[in-house]
């Protein structure tokens, strides 16, 4: 399945911005489950200095700098991504008490995905929440992950007004609702406390041609957990499901801070700016010229 993605981020400044330095996680990942057939990054104003690099997590990041004053900044990332089904093994069925025998090894090896981070602090509120949804000894690990995201979605409704991109776990727990980023962070918190290495994924969810009507689209976020026999396995708490062919991975990290789509610093006489994101993800006809090795 091939998808065409157009992800435009537009900043409008109240007073001209200058000395603007940004880092963008906008290029989809190349991995066994997806192939980036084409990628293009356009920045206005012209003359921006752009460098691509690979960060600690292996994400391909663009560093975008603009020195002279400008009233607006537009970053448009266009990708053609082929999503390949059938990669990644089926997680082995394993009861929690067995899983825990390797806990010490996992803690050493995957510590960064098991500890508290900026957006996922192990607060008292989170610990209480975890206590309500803690694993049972004889429960299957994959079932536990599914039960956790189900539990989270039962407790918290999708609500765009209650949190923002800087909201921490405690705010979501207090607010009683949130968006995909919040559900991902909350899931990370619970699973990490349970001892399951878990990481944050930012990306896109292509519309389901069967049920979705074309309309406004937004960037998406979900989690991946390290499961016995299967490696990193995606779960989408917002939609209460395993990730599937419609999930397009862009960046991974410990939390939102590691995978922020566009983040930056600029100078300006007035601090205010407005940001608008336009996202279009749609199935594209497979262009024969690409000739990829789809079986």
């Amino acid at each position: 399945m091939v998808f065409r993605v157009r992800h435009a981020t537009h900043f409008q400044y109240q007073a001209p911005a200058y000395e603007s330095h940004n880092e963008a996680h906008l290029r989809p990942c190349d991995d066994p489950s997806q192939l980036v057939l084409a990628f293009d990054l356009k920045v206005a104003p012209q003359g921006a200095s752009i460098r691509e690099f690979r960060d600690y997590f292996g994400n391909r990041v663009h560093s975008i700098s603009i020195y002279p004053p400008h009233d607006a900044l537009t970053i448009v990332a266009s990708s053609l991504v082929e999503r390949l089904p059938g990669f990644g093994g089926q997680p082995a069925s394993m009861r929690f008490e067995r899983y825990l025998t390797d806990d010490a090894v996992r803690t050493r090896k995957h510590c960064e995905y098991l500890t508290a981070t900026r957006y996922v602090p192990f607060s008292d509120r989170l610990r209480k929440f975890f206590w309500m949804s803690r694993p049972r000894k004889n429960e299957d690990v994959v079932e536990y992950v599914m039960r956790t995201i189900g539990f989270i979605r039962d407790q918290f409704g999708y609500d765009t007004g209650k949190t923002d991109v800087h909201s921490s776990l405690d705010e979501i727990l207090r607010a009683g609702g949130g968006v995909c980023q919040d559900f991902a962070h909350l899931t990370l918190g619970v699973l990490r406390l349970a001892g399951i290495p878990s990481r944050y994924v930012s990306g896109y969810l292509a519309p389901d041609p069967g049920t979705d009507t074309p309309g406004e689209q937004a960037t998406h976020a979900w989690v991946e957990t390290l499961l016995p026999g299967a490696g990193w396995t995606g779960f989408d708490p917002t939609n209460r499901c395993r990730t599937d062919i419609r999930h397009i991975r862009v960046a991974i990290g410990r939390d939102y801070a590691d995978a922020t789509p566009v983040r930056g610093v600029y100078r300006s006489a007035a601090g205010q700016n407005t940001m608008r994101v336009d996202l279009e993800v749609c199935p594209a006809p497979m262009a024969p010229s690409f000739g990829q090795s789809q079986q």
């Binding site: 000395e19 330095h21 880092e23 460098r51 690099f53 560093s63 700098s65 610093v265 600029y266």
Partner: peptide, 10 residues
């Protein structure tokens, strides 16, 4: 210095 890290990387 905003942007120093990316200068170093480049």
């Amino acid at each position: 210095v905003p942007g120093l890290t990316s200068v170093l990387r480049a």
